[in-house]
């Protein structure tokens, strides 16, 4: 009779006060949380773009904005997002800038402060520093727009894998620029970490920023 399952279950409840169960339950709960945390950490983050593993410092540059010279190295410690475009750009550039602005909105305030977008013009003939500043701040107050001589822009673009060229246009738009439309993300240590292709939505961009800001 003493082998009955009921007597087995009842026996401890009679002899053990409930706090003793807490002794078992609490460590189990903690172990569960640690496992859950570890599992989430161990899950490789699925990036929206191509991740670069080599630790090559992103080439530094010094270009001009309407608030003075801007160097990549000024922003060490932040996640720097480089985008090459031009203010007369009809579709790809405004869409991308809006996506980055929306991604920053998604981040919490501390993370948002640590993201710096730098918009480098590929059309230095028409884009003055003032025009660029006004244009990028339309998307987010923190954005910087920079320009330089044709040689300076050409060098920086080449090193960042950006191709561009003046193309056809119309009376209304003026000439259009063909250009590589990737977002380049440089981590806090100044290494180029990710190349995000055009078309990734703001949630995808925000998730990658968040992961790289951990």
């Amino acid at each position: 009779m003493t082998e009955s399952p009921f007597s087995e279950e009842l026996a401890p409840s009679r002899s053990r006060p409930p706090w003793q169960y807490a002794l078992v339950a609490v460590p189990l709960l903690v172990a569960g949380l640690v496992f859950w945390w570890g599992y989430n950490r161990a899950q490789p983050h699925q990036f929206s773009g191509a991740v670069i593993q080599g630790l090559t410092a992103a080439p530094d540059f010094s270009l001009s904005s309407d608030s003075g010279p801007v160097s990549l190295s000024d922003h060490r410690g932040k996640l720097v997002v480089l985008y090459f475009g031009y203010t007369f750009c009809p579709d790809v550039c405004p869409t991308t800038l809006q996506d980055v602005a929306d991604a920053i909105e998604i981040l919490d305030d501390d993370d948002a402060k640590d993201v710096q977008l730098i918009f480098v013009t590929v059309d230095p003939v028409r884009d003055t520093a003032e025009r660029l500043g006004e244009y990028v701040r339309h998307f987010d107050e923190s954005f910087l727009g920079v320009t330089g001589t044709e040689e300076e822009i050409g060098s920086v673009a080449t090193l960042y894998g950006i191709y561009y060229r003046a193309g056809e246009g119309s009376e209304a738009t003026g000439y259009l620029m063909e250009h590589t439309a990737t977002l380049l993300v440089i981590d806090r240590e100044g290494n180029l970490k990710e190349v995000i292709p055009f078309g990734v939505d703001s949630e995808g961009i925000a998730a990658d920023f968040e992961y790289m800001l951990r």
Partner: peptide
């Protein structure tokens, strides 16, 4: 194979005078 770093962006002219860009 590791993803080492970004290749440059460029515009080339080939032996048949055609443009060949990184894009």
């Amino acid at each position: 194979l590791p993803r080492v770093r970004l290749a440059p962006g460029f515009s080339l002219i080939d032996s048949e005078s055609r443009t060949l860009t990184s894009e």
